[in-house]
Structure formats: structure tokens, C-alpha cells
């Protein structure tokens, strides 16, 4: 039915491309380019240190280091506080019917404490697709690691157990085409003209 007999695995293709890119010959600048640039730069006014960096240099090194550490701690504390709220909001919303987008959640914990893993079901409808996978921050955007199974009516399904946290993902159709989750509750620009679905657990 399909023509997969002698074709190399997708990851082998990719490895070959990685090697090909590494092996591309280095392009050499025309003779005298560096000297010409250096000469042109001499005509410019000398650069000045930015006032912010100058201030940082005036402060003793340990003070700067401790200021960074303190700021990081405060930031982490704020994030943890926010995540705690979100998890509890999500748990409450799980019980509400009609909330299921392309992803449905089943908490793996018992009692009020946060679960160590959360079962997530990805669902994507693509009757015309030959294969669908999920790629995201949970698998380093690997397009081959988490393939979905074809269900009835052209629905592709995959269950995963993920640690609580925030993830971004897209569906990968036929190995190369990235498709945003049409049912995502939250999206974030991926910088390439598409939107990653945001999953908060």
C-alpha cells in the first residue's frame, strides 16, 4: 500500500543532512576585505562604554552576584506560586464537562497533593494523513519520537504521561508538516509564522 520498502529512516536522512551541513566548504573572503573594513572603522568615533555596564563595574563583584541570585530566587518563587494556582485551577476545570480540546487530562495523583505525572491524551483529526506525531518541548521537538495511532473517523490519538509543567507542541503530519492544534486553549507565536499550542499541567 505504501512505498516504504527501500527508503532510509527519516532520522538517517536527517543525520546525513547534519553531516552535509558540517562538511560544506567554508567560503573564503576576498583578499584585503579585513584590511578595508579595519581602515573604514578608523574613521568612526571611538565606542563608549554603556552607563549601565559602567555602573555594574563600579559595584563590587560579589554584590552584583548576590543581586542576581536574589532576583532569580524571587522570580522562581513567583513562578512556583503561579504554577500552584494554575494546577489547582486546571484540576477544578477537569471536572467541568465540555472542556476537552485536542488534549484531555487525567490527573495521576490521589488526594490534594500535586501528581508526579499527568496523563495527557492528544487527539488530532486528519483523515487524509499517512502519519501524525506530536513534537514539542517535552521531546525536544523530535518529529519521530512520539507517533500517534490512527483511530476511527481519521482521528489520531496518543496518550503520554507528563510531569506537571508548561509545554509547547504542534502536530507533525506526514513527517514534515507542522500543524498547530486547532483546539488549543492557549497559543504562543513560534517566530515562524505559526502558533505553538501551550499545555499547562
Amino acid at each position: 500500500m505504501t512505498d516504504t520498502r527501500k527508503r532510509p529512516a527519516p532520522q538517517d536522512d536527517v543525520r546525513g543532512l547534519e553531516e552535509g551541513l558540517r562538511a560544506l566548504a567554508h567560503d573564503v573572503p576576498p583578499e584585503g576585505l579585513a584590511e578595508r573594513i579595519a581602515g573604514d572603522l578608523r574613521a568612526l568615533p571611538p565606542p563608549r562604554r554603556s552607563p549601565l555596564l559602567r555602573l555594574r563595574e563600579l559595584l563590587p563583584r560579589p554584590a552584583v552576584t548576590w543581586a542576581y541570585r536574589l532576583a532569580t530566587l524571587l522570580l522562581l518563587g513567583g513562578i512556583l506560586w503561579g504554577v500552584r494556582d494554575l494546577v489547582s485551577v486546571r484540576r477544578r476545570s477537569e471536572t467541568a464537562p465540555g472542556q476537552a480540546p485536542g488534549v484531555s487530562l487525567v490527573s495521576g495523583g490521589k488526594g490534594p497533593e500535586a501528581p508526579s505525572k499527568v496523563r495527557v491524551t492528544f487527539v488530532f483529526k486528519a483523515p487524509e494523513a499517512g502519519s501524525v506525531a506530536v513534537a514539542g518541548t517535552f521531546n525536544d521537538w523530535d518529529t519521530a519520537k512520539d507517533p500517534m495511532s490512527r483511530g476511527k473517523d481519521g482521528e489520531w490519538v496518543l496518550q503520554m504521561d507528563l510531569a506537571p509543567g508548561q509545554y509547547e507542541y504542534q502536530f507533525v503530519v506526514d513527517g514534515t508538516r507542522f500543524v498547530p492544534d486547532p483546539n488549543a486553549l492557549e497559543e504562543r507565536e513560534d517566530g515562524l509564522g505559526n502558533a505553538n499550542a501551550v499545555l499547562r499541567l
Partner: peptide, 9 residues
């Protein structure tokens, strides 16, 4: 990842 996938295509 996407660059490699697109390049492969």
C-alpha cells in the same frame, strides 16, 4: 529540528 525537516523535504 524544523530546519532539518524542511531541508530534507
Amino acid at each position: 529540528r524544523r530546519g532539518l525537516e524542511m531541508l530534507r523535504g
